[in-house]
């Protein structure tokens, strides 16, 4: 079944010489490394010899032949970062994670890696964890970065993050306010709407903080499922004409009291949301 997936990837890209890197990077993003059988399958399917495939796979740093951990820590040891003391930072990471660069911790949580320049030399030493950049990293900060990564860097810290602010929205049909003062999500009164999906019907509380995706709902919504959203007052379905830019599901429009429109994607787990504050696009 696994190899079927690899075969599909090969079919998608075709077997010309130039498509090998695209194939390998697709496989890498699926399995987070390049398994041996996958490389053999690629060689077979594309009619290339295994040495060639293996040569390319080992040539590029972004490909890994060993399974990687859940979080990838790349510490820049390039010239500029080195001068700014990245060696000590790199060493501290080794200490904190108890692994040597290029290896994965035994609990499969972290992979530590040295990179040679990330193109942000002026901000060095640079550390990238799961796609998040940390600049001017000092050895004393390493512990905090590792801790943050453990908790997941994608969850938004509502108390300290400057990009998060509360919104007050209303229904685009009846203009009735949608804020629910009786509940709290993220410490603020949430947006209350009615939803229906898979023959279930119930309420959904959305955090009113722009940038936070926390929510509560009567029924657990399966990930990736789309829901129909209704105004709890006029019962009109809230759906906009333009589909979500990243997943294609319907967007749910709401009027922002401060002036403007908020649109959120109706797919659970999709993080597309657009805030159009009278001309300012966020």
């Amino acid at each position: 079944m696994k190899l079927q997936h690899v075969e599909n990837i090969v079919d998608k890209h075709g077997s010309e010489r130039g498509s090998l890197i695209a194939i390998l990077s697709d496989i890498q993003s699926t399995y987070s490394y390049l398994p041996e059988e996958a490389l053999r399958t690629v060689a077979q399917k594309t009619g290339k010899s295994l040495v060639d495939v293996y040569g390319v796979a080992t040539f590029y740093r972004s490909f890994s032949l060993k399974p990687r951990g859940k979080h990838l820590c790349s510490v820049c040891v390039g010239t500029a970062c080195h001068v700014r003391g990245s060696e000590r930072v790199a060493h501290e990471f080794e200490q904190q994670l108890q692994v040597k660069p290029g290896n994965t911790t035994s609990d499969r949580q972290f992979t530590l890696e040295h990179v040679n320049c990330l193109g942000a030399c002026a901000l060095g030493p640079i550390v990238v964890v799961d796609g998040h950049y940390f600049s001017n990293v000092k050895t004393t900060e390493v512990k905090r970065i590792v801790g943050q990564a453990r908790e997941g860097l994608d969850t938004v810290e509502v108390k300290t993050d400057q990009r998060v602010f509360p919104l007050d929205v209303s229904c685009p049909r009846c203009n009735h306010g949608l804020m629910d003062p009786e509940n709290l999500v993220d410490g603020y009164p949430p947006i209350r709407v009615t939803i229906s999906f898979e023959r279930k019907h119930g309420w959904l509380l959305l955090s009113c903080l722009y940038g936070s995706f926390n929510s509560r709902s009567e029924h657990a919504i399966p990930l990736e499922a789309t829901v129909h959203v209704f105004c709890p007052h006029c019962h009109a379905e809230l759906s906009s004409a333009t589909p979500c830019a990243s997943c294609g599901a319907t967007m749910v429009p709401m009027i922002v009291r401060q002036g403007g429109v908020l649109q959120v994607c109706s797919r659970h787990g999709c993080r597309e949301h657009v805030l159009d504050l009278d001309g300012v696009n966020l």
Partner: peptide, 25 residues
């Protein structure tokens, strides 16, 4: 045969079989 080839790059560049096991070809 194409049993051996270049692997890795820079300092790590080496010649050998894929995965360092005996090649079938």
């Amino acid at each position: 045969a194409k049993a051996i080839g270049f692997r890795g790059r820079g300092e790590q560049r080496s010649i050998g079989t894929p995965f360092d096991v005996k090649s079938e070809v």
